[in-house]
Nucleic acid binder design. Structure first.
Lengths: 240, 240
DNA sequence: TAGATTGTTAATCGATTAACAATC
DNA sequence: TAGATTGTTAATCGATTAACAATC
């Protein structure tokens, strides 16, 4: 039973769908579509209309019976929910290939995420600029973050340097870490949120699914062998 | 009721945990640990021991009562399940910042993923090499993929070029697309698996969670206003 | 043998889908 | 008003956790 004042935690499944709503409503806006029903959203997004209404009702009552949702109003509400009505300042830690690629990417600023500094330990890189963003010595990281109210640290350092950088970040006013390192980051009970990208996991998942049909053939054969006709607790017609 | 010969579909939740098992078992191997129980795995991985046993039993019976799991044997089994006992050939499509960063990354080949070619439409890039991998004209893409038995296409082209490239890929023998573009790829009933990275979604999710405590304050106030003392169907003690 | 730990069934929990009264 | 569509409760489905017999 929920207590007065207690807040229903929004599930990660819902949170992960929010960017999809946001993205598609943005498209509708650009097409000057004024209103949309959960039914219509359902067709494009592939979620059920019921789920869409449930999802949105976690955050408020944005629709109107018999009408549906006003596109631009809903778009704005979801932007608020995602926290992107104000700009976010980011720094990239690690000016390697990936760090440079992210610094060069222009797609973040459209949504109000501005990279204002890059940090690296390599003195040959310090002083240079990537996409007009200066590279600073990593020693200055904490000072820079606190002074400039940086919200998000984009972590693209090598595996071995991750732990020490994360420890240093916990002593700053940073709010979130966008982690591109393969390291599992654990920050105990502090106000810093970590979002892992884990590219290798993503690639392995792809590999699994490419491999899946072959795998299931193999599993099937194995089980047939384990539980042949009439033996075992399952009958022939129950090969699981 | 399952039919004979029918295969239980492994849920995405399980699949997404497989790389974690694989990664941690690799660590244990390097530490020369010989055996491990689901209990011990549970402590490190943060999944319950019960869940770990359930997950593994989707694919076979790899443990032994009273003993646990043999680390290197389980590692090998999971490698088989993930389909990484044989090498995978990859091509990068789009030699922009991200494409170049991925081509330069050395972490993929450790797991048997080899990038053997890069494709771009820019004639100034064609003929150059990134990390010893040649850049070819994108016209040659289909021929190259089929001739060299390429398994995976890493897609890092601009948004507008995605659709046409994907259409062309469906006419090749490619098995999987690792999609770094912001476009939602839909390939109807063909043998090609798509794994989306969608960095913007990941960043927006981070933003949501940074914003969450503020958001919940706001939601709470709103609900208090909507359903004041003694009014509405909920009592004061039922503020949801 | 006794202790440990699996594989697996059953119970629980949470998320999705269905249904429908409320109402624009 | 009649038709449409929401917000929300109830039903269903699926995933996680608990429990325990089997057995190393």
């Amino acid at each position: 039973m929920e207590q007065p004042g207690e807040i229903k935690k929004v599930s990660m499944a819902v949170i992960k769908r929010l960017p999809k709503y946001y993205k598609y409503l943005g498209e509708l806006m650009r097409k000057n579509v004024e209103r949309v029903s959960s039914q219509e959203l359902s067709k494009i997004l592939g979620f059920t209309a019921s789920q869409i209404r449930q999802d949105l009702n976690n955050f408020g009552e944005f629709g109107q019976q018999g009408y549906g949702y006003n596109v631009s109003q809903l778009y704005t509400e979801i932007a608020k929910i995602l926290g992107i009505t104000t700009n976010h300042k980011m720094v990239v830690i690690g000016a390697g290939n990936l760090g440079q690629a992210l610094a060069n990417y222009t797609g973040f600023s459209i949504h109000g995420f501005d990279i204002i500094g890059i940090f690296d330990k390599n003195p040959n890189l310090v002083g240079r600029k990537i996409n007009d963003i200066p590279i600073y010595p990593v020693e200055d990281m904490e000072y820079f973050i606190n002074k400039n109210n940086v919200d998000i640290a984009v972590l693209t350092v090598p595996r071995d340097e991750t732990e020490s950088i994360v420890n240093r970040l916990t002593n700053t006013a940073i709010r979130g870490i966008w982690n591109f390192t393969p390291v599992e980051i654990n920050i105990e009970d502090r106000d810093i949120v970590v979002e892992n990208v884990h590219l290798i996991d993503s690639l392995l998942t792809l590999s699994y699914r490419i491999n899946e049909s072959w795998l299931q053939e193999r599993l099937l054969k194995q089980k047939r062998k384990d539980k042949p006709f009439g033996h075992g607790k399952n009958t022939t017609y129950m090969v699981k």
